[in-house]
Computed example of a mutant assay.
Amino acid sequence: MRYKEAGVDIDYADFIKKRIKKFIPEISKGRFAGIYKINKDNYLAATVDGVGTKLILAKEIGYLEGIGIDIVNHCVNDLLCVGARPLFFLDYIASSNLKEIEIYEIIKGIDKALKEHDAFLIGGETAEMPDIYNKSMFDLVGCMIGILKKENIIPKKLKEGDLIYGISSSGLHTNGFSLVRKIIKDKNISLETKIGNKKLKNLLLIPHRSYFKILYPLIIKNRIKACVHITGGGFEGNIKRVLDEGLSAEIDFKDFEVPEIFKFIQEMGEVPEEEMFKVFNMGIGMIIIFSKKDEDYIKKYFKKLNEPVYFLGVIKKFYGKKVKIYYRR
């Protein structure tokens, strides 16, 4: 089964993004967040995103606080990919019937995640539109503003020989849920199914991880050249966003141990390997790229934090494909 069969066409979404790119200022093109210069040395960064159809599972299972955490951390990570720290956040919640949503639980999750980043919820919008949304359905969107200094803007210019490392995800984060839900429905899989010692429903609703606290100190010390948030479009679609002309990224997953939840999804849905890496984060939620000379420093930094990092590949001269991925054995 492929994502397109679940109603999501990543290739067409990329086509649309390319068409509208002409309306975006040059400094913001291709970035995970837009950048706006406010004075000589300081910039604002802005990002907006949603939680997708993870909302449907969260409502069905009864854990809406988690999607509040999801939307904040997703936005924090996108800001991080340009070198920004978060300042404030606004939410948009729309539904066919607001009475059927535990809005308080969503906002509680948003507030919890914002406090982790010393950021604030300064407003938002709630809309009731029964002619737009199906019965009992709703949507959650978040907009986050951050600040950064000119010297800390990333991605910086990459070069041949730069190293590519990955940092673990907490789970699916907020991508691929339309495909997951279709597999669950078509294969009649119970959400109570055990994977290891955990239930499927609990694994699916683990909140999106924030990488701010572990990566921002490296960014402001200019130890990291690029961060890549593995979201919609997977590895190839996101890594190519930070590559300069004349460069390619070569990624090797042959020795990486993919978490069981992804193996379960692939097996149950008979999803091709390449499709899995295009749709899901496969256990790597953030990629960092840095100079070879900084490798010892960065490895010691993560060892001190007791945070595993995984060598995935190198930056090479362009050889016909922007991102070359060697999949698992």
Rank of each mutant, 00 (worst) to 15 (best):
E116V: 05
P217Q: 02
N306E: 08
I315N: 04
I289D: 03
K293T: 09
K187S: 08
K300V: 05
R31Q: 11
D111K: 14
Y319R: 11
G146R: 04
F253Q: 13
K4S: 13
S248T: 04
V309C: 11
Y133W: 05
N202G: 14
M282P: 00
N306W: 04
A58T: 08
L215Y: 05
R223E: 07
K213N: 01
K278V: 08
Y133A: 01
T53A: 13
K182N: 10
L312K: 01
D70V: 07
T174P: 12
K304M: 07
Y326V: 08
Y92H: 11
C227V: 14
E26H: 00
I288Y: 08
R328C: 13
I251N: 13
D9W: 04
L87E: 09
E307Q: 14
G166T: 09
I20W: 01
M282L: 02
V242N: 10
K194H: 09
G176Q: 00
K278G: 11
F318H: 02
E307Y: 12
F88N: 06
D244W: 15
L205Y: 03
L312H: 07
G246K: 05
V8K: 10
L87C: 06
L204T: 03
M286C: 02
P86E: 10
Y327P: 01
G146S: 03
E116I: 05
D252H: 05
E128I: 12
L305G: 01
L158D: 08
N197A: 03
G30C: 05
P308F: 06
E270H: 11
C227G: 07
F311L: 12
K99Q: 14
Y133H: 02
T193W: 14
K199E: 13
